[in-house]
Simulated scan of single mutants.
Amino acid sequence: MENPNPHRRQFVRAALVTAASYSRILGANDRIRIGAIGTGGRCQYLLSQLKMLEDNEIVACCDVYEPRRLEAKTKYGTADASVHVDYREILDRKDIDGVVVGTPDHWHVPVTIASVRAGKDVYCEKPVTHTLEEAAPLLAAVRETNRVLQTGTQQRSWEHFAQARDVIAEGRLGQVTLIRTYWFQNHIPAIGRVPSFDTTKLDWKRFLGSAADRPFDPDQFGNWRWYWDFGGGAMTDLFIHWVDVAHWIMGDDSPSRATANGLKAVLLQRQTPDTMSAALAYGKVIVEFDCALLGYIEGGGLMIRGTKAGMRLWRGGFEIYDEIPRYSENPNPSNAAMQVKSKQDGTLPHMKNFLDCVRSRKQPNAHVEIGIAAARAGHVANLAMRGSGVWNAGGRG
């Protein structure tokens, strides 16, 4: 059959050659040179983990807010690290091997696509996409350029999460039919509190990017995750972590249906709900998410229910409880059959996995397809919550 796009093959070859021409060939003793793009709180934590690892150095820092880029350079950069307000200046440097992208969500795909096309490997915070529609061009860019993309769902490199998955795969819980995920945080202290920023040192227009123009709003800048133009609320900030673990456990990352409800009960100044519940259907498993940003009790984690046993899994470890012989209303099972405690924060080995793959050119633990699938789950939950309450894979709502 005739190729409907005869120039596509030449375009792909050109993209690969262009990406390769920008890449620096690493020797065994070379330090991996990293640029940081979007150096807010989360990105700076990632940089702190990189600084704990060997054979890398932070040589450039970019942020739309001058105090943040200077702080990142001072704390984590080399003495001669450059600072930038325009991330493209980092991508133009042939001596930089990779970038850490910690921008607001609506910048993730534009910056990542530009980075891989410039021959850079990328560590991008989750969610890797801001909309469902961004998945296809992102996937195409990563595949065509053959760059490494590690997405920020660090449970994929966290030892006890991998061990929990193995235990479940061995049949210890029996058939798993329900995975309840939850995350509870207390944002009440933020009510009425207005963040303070020196707007003379902020490029507000550059922060907005593709979002509609508007006057500067300190809460939208400081708490962008809770505004739809820049983030996706708790579904894409918190649920993504746990649903990715569920995908890993189930071996299934394609929900057929989602139902969700949410409301703004207390945090009225924000756009995204502070209280929500969602349920996604995967084959013979339901994955639930409950969240309220009004208190810390119970924290965050997963309760995985099987026909033989249940597992409570969280960042601190996991516990397995065998099924009991009779009905009980005790909410706290006792006498765990198996207990495992976490040895360290999984962000450190996740960053190490990224650096290892920059050298080896192997696929990282949370590669682009994994990141897209986790983000998709958060997006369809939001579509259900913001729409009729129901999302179906076939387009019926």
Results as ranks from 00 to 15, higher is better:
E2C: 03
T131F: 02
L50C: 10
L139V: 08
Y321G: 11
N146C: 09
L173W: 14
T78W: 11
R359I: 02
R93E: 05
D244P: 00
V176M: 07
D95R: 02
V85L: 01
A336N: 00
G27W: 06
T275F: 06
F318V: 00
I249F: 10
K73S: 13
I96G: 03
K341A: 04
G171P: 08
N332G: 00
L139E: 12
E159L: 13
L53M: 12
Y123H: 15
M338T: 12
I179K: 02
R172D: 11
Q175G: 05
N332Y: 07
Y65E: 03
Y182R: 01
I90C: 01
I304F: 14
L355T: 08
Q363E: 12
I188T: 10
Q163C: 05
H187Y: 15
G317Y: 01
F289V: 05
A384D: 07
L47I: 08
L173I: 10
V122M: 07
N223G: 05
A309K: 00
A292F: 09
R225I: 04
M338K: 06
I179S: 06
W228Q: 08
R8Y: 14
I320L: 14
A81V: 00
G171M: 14
A60T: 00
E170T: 13
R180G: 08
I90F: 13
A234W: 02
F161H: 13
C357R: 01
I25A: 15
K352N: 08
L202Q: 04
R8F: 10
C291I: 00
K120L: 03
G40N: 07
G35D: 14
L178I: 13
R9M: 10
M351Y: 06
I113M: 15
E144D: 12
Y327L: 11
F289D: 09
A279E: 04
I37Y: 06
D203S: 08
G209V: 04
L46F: 12
F216W: 11
N330E: 15
C124H: 01
S115W: 12
K94E: 09
T199M: 03
E144G: 05
Y76M: 01
T131E: 07
A141L: 05
V194N: 07
M338S: 09
P273M: 14
N56V: 11
V128P: 01
D80S: 12
Q339R: 13
S210N: 14
L348G: 05
E125D: 13
C61G: 02
A169R: 15
F161L: 06
A81H: 03
W391T: 03
R33T: 12
A169K: 15
E57W: 04
P331E: 13
V99G: 07
P127Q: 09
K343L: 13
Y282D: 11
A366R: 15
L302K: 01
P67R: 01
A258L: 03
V101I: 15
A211S: 12
V101M: 04
C62T: 02
P104W: 12
S210Q: 11
D229M: 10
S21D: 12
S82A: 15
M385W: 14
I96P: 06
R31I: 00
T177R: 14
D345L: 06
V99M: 10
V358H: 01
R206D: 07
T181R: 00
S21I: 07
W183C: 09
G232D: 09
F11V: 03
I188V: 06
S48I: 05
D219C: 10
M276V: 00
I113D: 11
